[in-house]
């Protein structure tokens, strides 16, 4: 059973069809790179998989939950890094991570461990996140994700706003997640970097999947791979 199974999925933002008929299958343990121009529907696809955006039509099954019927169950099992930080400005790094970890049934100890994993400076631990830099807030959001231990990671531009060390941590997180049997979807414009962690590239444009190529040997230089789906490009 695929972790993500989408057939002709349409999803609307108001009246706008952000997804206009997506077909996609992602197997367990895959790390998939989503690329495409701005407004292509990458973020909407991630939100759909997270159970935040309702499929208006088509078949959408994520982690075994039919999103057309039940979008609530899937949310416990996914971890989403969005453009928004999902943090409360007035709470400290520790309080934020601890709150979301405990909401997901975790413990303060797991929150501590997640903060350590993201290598957030211990001096920043008790400072309200509103006073942190963008990069530090990003790390805090990632710590929340780590503390939740999701089965499906949905990362929207995870490298944005991070310094070199932070980017390396993100890559390490993705590899660890895949090694632990989780599945990862990464939407990114930073193809060079993301290609080193992804095993497959999916191209989205105009709300549909237009190309789907494996990356054999990941970062090894290879020729164009055969297409696996999407409408006829020619």
């Amino acid at each position: 059973m695929s972790v993500v199974h989408l057939r002709a999925v349409v999803a609307l933002l108001g009246r706008f069809p952000a997804l206009a008929g997506v077909d996609l299958d992602v197997e367990s343990g895959e790390a998939v790179l989503l690329q495409g121009p701005n407004g292509a529907g990458k973020t909407s696809l991630l939100r759909l998989c997270a159970g935040l955006l309702a499929p208006a039509s088509g078949e959408a099954v994520v982690l075994g939950h039919d999103l057309g019927r039940d979008r609530r169950s899937v949310r416990r099992e996914v971890g989403m890094l969005a453009h928004a930080t999902f943090l409360y400005d007035d709470l400290s790094v520790y309080e934020n991570v601890c709150f979301w970890a405990r909401a997901a049934g975790g413990s303060p100890a797991e929150a501590e461990a997640a903060i350590a994993r993201l290598e957030i400076d211990t001096r920043l631990r008790d400072i309200p996140v509103v006073r942190l830099s963008t990069g530090q807030r990003r790390r805090t959001s990632l710590a929340v994700l780590v503390a939740r231990r999701p089965r499906l990671w949905l990362l929207d531009e995870p490298h944005a706003g991070l310094d070199q060390a932070g980017r390396d941590i993100v890559d390490g997180l993705v590899r660890d997640a895949v090694d632990a049997g989780a599945t990862v979807l990464v939407a990114s414009h930073e193809l060079d970097r993301t290609r080193t962690i992804a095993s497959r590239v999916i191209t989205i444009a105009g709300g549909v999947v237009v190309a789907d190529q494996p990356i054999p040997g990941r970062s090894m230089p290879v020729g164009p791979a055969p297409e696996r789906g999407g409408p006829d490009v020619a």
Binding site: A8, S57, V208
Partner: peptide, 9 residues
């Protein structure tokens, strides 16, 4: 009525 039945692209 929910949403339009769609043609496949």
């Amino acid at each position: 009525v929910s949403h339009p039945p769609r043609e496949q692209p």
